[in-house]
Nucleic acid binder design. Structure first.
Lengths: 154, 154
DNA sequence: TTTCTAATTTGCAACTGATGCTAACTAGCA
DNA sequence: TGCTAGTTAGCATCAGTTGCAAATTAGAAA
């Protein structure tokens, strides 16, 4: 995603108003690697601007996504996540802590389908699921019992 | 997914009851390639067994998924889809008609991450997005206007 | 065949994430 | 400074899903 200053210019060029709410979100999203949900952004934003509406967060995120400044990431666990990294990349989801990390793929930068099906592919998304470094370490110090329990839970 | 008969045996072995509702769902799911939602299964099931509860559909699908007889597919468009194909495969989603198709990948059967991040990967899911054969054909006979409109709509 | 009981189903309430609607507000131009 | 189109806030509403408890039932035992 572009810098808050650049985004401000883009908005001005499009005759869109540069409200304090929008500017706050620009800065919260800029170089944000945490793949936040609308709700989590709302919590942070509320501290800096009490009274800001969750509705406005959704609204602005939707606009940014429509303008291609933001990527929507839905990995099937709860809410949609927002990713200011719009470069070509994929995601790793930790099944323990639900964190999402950007990843690059070494092999097969362009995957091809087993053809003959007549699909016109616009976009390919790869989601890796597993356990991140931190959760792996934590796991090692737990009892086998709690480990098994952890494994069984969805 | 196993055949209804085999599933019946699995349930008996686990001391689970073989209710008519469960048997109906076994047969509706067996060799079902349409990646149905709970709701769409409910509609079909209701015709054969009026009065069956949507709650029961969710319940049974959840059990089957937990037993590994069913795969949950969430491609970020509305409801969770259920896939009785539990073999290793991936999905193509048509952005026009929302249909999901199973696909095999030619290259890179095993993708590796740009390592050094310490992720323990359990599972890799690839989702292709685009337009299926049918929707591509339909598109060709539409006016440029409606085509543009279609493209713009989310 | 009848009885019994733990498992299952049903129906409804409730919850989460997201969006529609509209009155009140405001950025930025004239 | 005033005006107005664009924006925000707040509430209602929706879809998908799950929790809960009462009613029902499959299947083992008598």
């Amino acid at each position: 995603m572009r810098s808050p200053t650049e985004l401000a210019q883009v908005f001005r060029d499009k005759q869109l108003k540069l409200t304090p709410q929008r500017q706050l979100l620009f800065s919260l999203l800029h170089q944000n690697q945490s793949h936040p949900t609308a709700e989590s952004l709302y919590e942070v934003a509320s501290k800096q601007m009490p009274g800001i509406s969750l509705r406005t967060i959704y609204q602005t995120l939707g606009e940014l996504a429509e303008m291609g400044e933001l990527q929507l990431v839905d990995v099937g666990i709860g809410a949609t996540r927002f990713d200011p990294n719009i470069a070509d990349h994929h995601h790793f989801v930790c099944e323990s802590c639900q964190a999402i990390h950007d990843v690059d793929i070494l092999s097969a930068p362009k995957m091809s389908l087993q053809s003959g099906e007549g699909f016109a592919v616009n976009e390919v998304g790869v989601v890796f699921r597993g356990h991140c470094n931190q959760c792996n370490h934590k796991q090692q110090f737990k009892s086998p019992g709690s480990q098994a329990k952890n494994k069984a839970s969805k």
